[in-house]
Amino acid sequence: MNNGKVKFFNELKGFGFIKDTNSDQDYFVHVSGLVDEIRENDEVTFDLQEGKKGLNAVNVKRA
């Protein structure tokens, strides 16, 4: 499990980005990878999964 903070999330389009707390890397997140509803600045935990354009955050839960 990784820890991070929601940097941006567009509820209408269903995607956003999470900034990893440890690496400062940004990861794409799609609404299909959410366990809980998220908003900008929420603290979250997540797993990483290879997607079409790199690593995506999946199993995203509010911390």
Rank of each mutant, 00 (worst) to 15 (best):
L12R: 12
S32R: 15
G54S: 11
S23W: 03
G33D: 04
V44S: 02
Q49W: 00
M1T: 12
L55W: 08
F9A: 07
V44R: 10
R62E: 04
G54Q: 12
K53L: 11
K7N: 09
V60W: 09
Y27A: 12
Q25C: 00
E37Q: 10
L34K: 05
E37H: 07
L48Q: 07
N56I: 11
N3D: 05
I18C: 07
E43K: 15
N22L: 15
V6F: 05
K13V: 03
G16M: 10
N59A: 03
F17T: 06
K61N: 11
K19N: 05
L48G: 06
N22T: 09
E43G: 02
R39G: 02
G16C: 11
D20W: 05
I18K: 10
T45G: 09
E43A: 15
N56E: 15
K5Q: 09
L55K: 15
F17Y: 14
D24W: 02
K5V: 11
V58D: 03
D36F: 05
V35M: 11
R39S: 14
K19Q: 14
G14E: 05
F15A: 10
K53M: 04
V35Q: 14
K13P: 00
A63V: 09
N2T: 06
Y27K: 08
E37A: 14
F8S: 04
H30L: 04
I38S: 04
T21V: 12
R62I: 08
T45Q: 13
K13G: 02
N3Q: 11
N22Q: 14
F8M: 04
S23P: 01
E40P: 00
G54M: 09
H30Y: 11
F17K: 09
K61C: 11
K52A: 13
E11C: 00
K53T: 15
R39E: 14
D24C: 01
F28P: 00
K13D: 01
M1C: 09
S23T: 15
V44W: 09
V29A: 08
N2W: 07
I38K: 10
G51E: 05
R62L: 13
E50A: 13
Q49Y: 04
H30Q: 13
V6Y: 03
T21A: 13
M1K: 14
F9I: 05
Y27I: 01
G16P: 00
F15E: 06
K13C: 03
E37V: 07
V6S: 03
K5G: 01
V58L: 08
A63Q: 13
L55G: 07
N56S: 07
G14C: 08
R62N: 10
F8C: 06
A57R: 10
E43Y: 07
L34D: 02
R39F: 10
K61W: 02
